[in-house]
């Protein structure tokens, strides 16, 4: 049963992912991305990372993706431009990424990972992650918060300037 759910989520993640990469319609690509992100959230949950899964749904799907869709809508006025580059470039990119993909898959399947012999039952992680964030990773955590703040202020500033500059 678990394997079936697992494989469903894998398909849910990977298939729309191709659509994101290959679709010729930016709106379709954006919605495929939504499904992919949702699939990844499911995989997180299956991995026992409940907290990360929830964060993925809230931040990625609720925040980032909505921003991207806004971006799509605000920049689609005027003529529609071809979404991708010409064929030779595509082939070149495909070959490059293909080789890297093969290398990655070979590494993933052939390496001897120091895997735990017996998998423990997943435990709720929120409390432990909270401990880590405010303990061992306090400084990165604070830096990330400053980064977010700076990014938000910077984003507002950049857009405002360009609007004013007109």
């Amino acid at each position: 049963m678990k394997d079936i759910i697992f494989n469903v989520f894998i398909l849910l993640t990977v298939i729309p992912c191709f659509w994101v990469a290959l679709s010729s319609n930016i709106v379709h690509a954006a919605f495929s991305l939504l499904i992919t992100l949702f699939g990844v959230a499911g995989l997180y949950v299956l991995l026992g990372a409940d907290f990360i899964g929830v964060v993925q749904v809230i931040v990625y799907i609720g925040g980032i993706l909505i921003l991207i869709i806004f971006g799509v809508m605000m920049t689609q006025r005027g003529k529609l431009l071809p979404l991708s580059i010409q064929l030779p470039g595509k082939v070149f990119g495909a070959v490059l990424t293909g080789v890297i993909l093969v290398a990655l898959i070979l590494t993933a399947t052939r390496s001897l990972w120091p895997v735990a012999a017996v998998l423990e039952e997943p435990q709720p992680t929120s409390a432990a992650i909270g401990d880590l964030l405010l303990g061992k990773y306090l400084i990165p955590f604070e830096v990330a918060s400053v980064l977010l703040l700076a990014a938000l202020v910077g984003a507002v500033l950049i857009v405002r300037r360009s609007v004013r500059g007109e």
């Binding site: 990119g93 490059l96 990424t97 080789v99 890297i100 093969v102 290398a103 070979l106």
Partner: peptide
């Protein structure tokens, strides 16, 4: 970015 990816590509080829 292509040059970056080419670098990774080279590394992969080298590794195998």
């Amino acid at each position: 970015l292509y040059s970056v990816v080419l670098g990774i590509f080279g590394l992969c080829v080298f590794m195998f």
